[in-house]
Nucleic acid binder design. Structure first.
Lengths: 341, 341
DNA sequence: GTGAAAGCGCTAACAT
DNA sequence: ATGTTAGCGCTTTCAC
């Protein structure tokens, strides 16, 4: 015998299944005696309602799907943590899919989640995604969709992002104020809004301080592998950067290693700034200055918004664009300044 | 109109639902014409089978539950990655719960997963868990249970672990062979088998090389917070360790930082060895020697075993105890030796 | 206050 | 080769 059902209880107690159902859910029209009778019996026999049956009836399961491009990754696992905690609190389950930065796997993940009939999906796009039909299909299926961090500008839906522009601007300004003038920007592909916004923050900070925007200092370099190619190359140039502003902490951390291996002092000769403020920043030597992205908070915010949509509680008009504030956390891989508090 | 159903197709094509059902699944008794007719119509109208209905019928959902104690963590996210990839390949979905090293959340996670009627559960125990009724309940519900890494010795079930003893023994022997004689062991609480096995590997390596086992060198220190307390304290003692063998890379990485902040050279004065061989080992300075735990592989192995149990394909008698081999990866936080290849 | 019956979407046994 | 019926576990009319 696997699990006890409502029917079993009904039979055992000589009641109708409907009565048992009502009694379990404290329906007002049920006498106190029957109610306690039923509930006691249920507890004693460890009755567990069959969610599958419930979901089939209401054609709605309390499950939220999440698609992340990378799971072994401080930022995304922090976001997942936030999503998980908030979802659990609200009684939702989580189906997690991992696209592994691969467009095809992302498409398949969408299929899987739709087949599982999730009631909403949170997505952070893979780097290789350039077609958006699969996202459109989510909406066509009347399933709620919210992008976080790596948003897709081609689809009109709710989004949760950090203020990449401001975070970037502040970080670069900090580098400038601490005396750097040839600041390299190691970004991601330009079609990624997070990268594009950070590039604009970078350029505007340079402009504000009357520094030239040098295309040679701006590279696409968003993985450890690329960093191991790109950074040494830049350090072999005639004019070497005196600062690296990196798209993530992984690249930043490797950047510190490489700069030191070339004999440069960090931050004496070269400053390095990362993005995320993960635990990595604590174990590099020197400890790394980075822009905190508050991933945990972003995760919570994203589910909150999604659940509000699902339950029809969102009052804001049109598409919501939620902005999480970043915070520059100055540690030791950038120089000190009195100008900066 | 939300989703199209079998019935809808049947009505539109003037067929019985059962015929449509059979046609969709290439039942041999269905004529080629009807089959293609049905399948074309289904494809055109984007028919998606309702998994909930299917699962209700078979009283079996193809969902596997996972409970991890920590999600923002290189090792566990690697394991999750392995679990995810293998499960997806086999057509299983994943329900992930996060106990956050908290016994009560772990118990609740078990409840949630059982209510969701998962067909199997993978667990790595929280540090604070000392009662096992909730695990027993999983078995009582006839749901397959497999422990990985942080196993529970109080429950008789399948397990997947790394050879902590051997991994530890080899690491400590490497430290000894490179000239260390006062090797500190930073472990976890003794009731955790992984910690206990590593402690035994540690002690046996010392004994083999005729070094004393000094209780003062063995501390419980398995988090960054504890490391920041315990390690400075040990470095202030009269006799300072000349090596730290740490239970995980986080503690190891922080250990390197602290040792350097005390003015010690790593590995000149003090060697440090971690456990996991995460990305952290690449960004510490010097890069950290560590024992690779092959988390990804462990994840795959654990799901494989679980799925075999679920599908009744496991031939091995009794409870399986799967052992993943570790591998000492020597980098720069331990000294060189000719003895060690 | 309680029961009987129908139905959520699907499939399997039993017709025809 | 296809249709009919029943039922997975639950809730919700509609009766009584």
């Amino acid at each position: 015998m696997g699990q006890i059902t409502l029917k079993d209880i009904a039979k055992a107690l000589n009641l109708a299944p409907s009565t048992v159902s009502r009694a379990m859910r404290n329906h007002p029209a049920i006498s106190k005696e029957t109610r306690t009778l039923v509930q006691d019996y249920a507890k004693e026999h460890k009755y567990k309602p069959n969610l599958l049956a419930l979901q089939l009836r209401t054609n709605k399961n309390n499950t939220i799907g999440v698609i992340v491009p990378e799971i072994v990754h401080y930022f995304f696992s922090s976001v997942l943590d936030g999503i998980q905690q908030e979802a659990e609190k609200e009684g939702y389950n989580l189906l997690i899919a991992h696209s592994n930065e691969d467009y095809k796997r992302e498409v398949r993940s969408v299929e899987t989640l739709l087949e599982a009939r999730v009631c909403g999906i949170l997505v952070s796009q893979s780097k290789t995604t350039e077609k958006f039909n699969h996202f459109q299909e989510i909406l066509d299926n009347k399933v709620h969709l919210i992008f976080f961090d790596r948003i897709c500008t081609g689809i009109n839906t709710d989004k949760v992002v950090v203020d990449d522009y401001v975070g970037s601007f502040n970080a670069v300004e900090h580098l400038i104020e601490t005396g750097c003038t040839r600041i390299a920007f190691l970004g991601s592909t330009p079609q990624m809004p997070i990268s594009n916004n950070r590039r604009m923050g970078y350029e505007d900070a340079l402009l504000k301080h009357k520094l030239p925007v040098d295309k040679d200092l701006m590279k696409i370099c968003d993985t450890v592998e690329m960093a191991k190619e790109v950074i040494p190359q830049m350090l072999k140039e005639e004019v070497v950067p005196d600062a690296f502003f990196c798209i993530n902490d992984e690249v930043g951390a490797i950047c510190i290693q490489i700069a030191k291996s070339f004999g440069y002092d960090v931050p004496g000769d070269i400053s390095v700034c990362g993005f995320t403020n993960s635990f990595l920043t604590e174990v590099t030597y020197p400890r790394m200055t980075s822009v905190d992205q508050h991933g945990f908070k972003m995760g919570k915010e994203a589910v909150r918004l999604l659940i509000n949509r699902i339950e029809g509680k969102e009052e804001r008009e049109g598409m919501v664009n939620s902005l999480i504030k970043t915070e520059l956390v100055v540690k030791e891989s950038t120089k000190c300044t009195r100008l900066h508090k």
